[in-house]
Design a protein around this nucleic acid. Structure first.
Lengths: 172, 172
DNA sequence: CCAATGTCAGACATACTGACATGA
DNA sequence: CTCATGTCAGTACGTCTGACATTG
């Protein structure tokens, strides 16, 4: 997931691409913004994964653990995890398989609707989330270069983007 | 790569996560921004990949083709492609293998330094890039919801982020 | 001898498809 | 019957590690 360790370039490859793109095609600005977004995500992702590695967690599994940790009773049906995290059902099955092997969650059947499978976080699971989260903090998710005002500006823009793309429907 | 088709949520899962995070851990704002970034990237990525699918191109291979198309003589050493696109050497080998099988690039040895391998874009390659790019345009890379001023605001913030993370060294 | 470049094999992680069993 | 939920097998892709041959 994380991108690679590479010699640093001494120029902005995106600015360069934008220049070239502009010569032949429309939409150079959208392209540049999109590419920047992708790069930025790679930075964030690799920063977090580096911090999670000692705990043998990937970001996907960490996210699932956090979600369970936050849930009222420490358990959620797999389907709900998938829709919250926007991942494919089979990916959820896979992630939970892994977490179960690691002893961080258990599977439990729902007595009421026996089609459902709950994933329930274990004490060991709660423990790693806490420790992993502490390990992530100093890296600031790779966003340490932004001021607090810039962070919220960024969030606003991304929210607008997500809303327009139908990431979720208008709350209230 | 694109994330999944899912029932739309009727609330913002990130806002919800931020609320919960804030109760127990510091850095809720950074977390929310980072998560938003990841989601936004998924939107952009899946939009582009959807548009590229008819051409049997992935985003990685499309990027490589664009890079070659933009290059002076239509050819670059594999290593250069890797550092520009920030991908692992083996990923480059892999992508070029694919593109070669598709007839979009050829490999050529460098007569001067025989350690180097050039990837050279073919006429068929130039043709798909052109067509694929036209196919992407209407989707605006998933960024159609942002005004032009917002796009450049976003770009500025991401540039700041990339610079602070050492994505490349100060130009000029 | 040492460094750089590209390739290969093997291991993972995620995503997607299609099929399926279970149960509401 | 149908629909929903989760699982499984199989496929594809990209990333990474470690080893290697070639060449400068």
């Amino acid at each position: 997931m994380g991108p690679t360790n590479h010699r640093q370039l001494d120029f902005d490859p995106i600015a360069e691409a934008r220049r070239q793109w502009q010569r032949r095609w429309p939409g150079a600005d959208v392209m540049a913004a999109a590419t920047s977004l992708i790069r930025a995500q790679q930075i964030v992702m690799s920063t977090v994964e580096r911090a999670l590695k000692p705990f043998d967690l990937t970001f996907a599994r960490y996210e699932a653990l956090v979600l369970l940790h936050f849930s009222r009773v420490g358990r959620l049906p797999l389907g709900k995890i998938g829709s919250r995290l926007q991942v494919h059902p089979t990916s959820v099955t896979n992630a939970i398989d892994r977490l179960e092997k690691q002893g961080f969650v258990n599977r439990k059947a729902d007595p009421n609707d026996r089609r459902l499978t709950f994933a329930e976080i274990t004490p060991a699971g709660r423990d790693v989330v806490e420790r992993a989260t502490r390990a992530i903090q100093p890296s600031a998710f790779g966003l340490g270069g932004l001021k607090s005002s810039e962070l919220s500006q960024l969030q606003d823009l991304l929210l607008k983007l997500r809303l327009s793309a139908g990431d979720f429907s208008k709350p209230k």
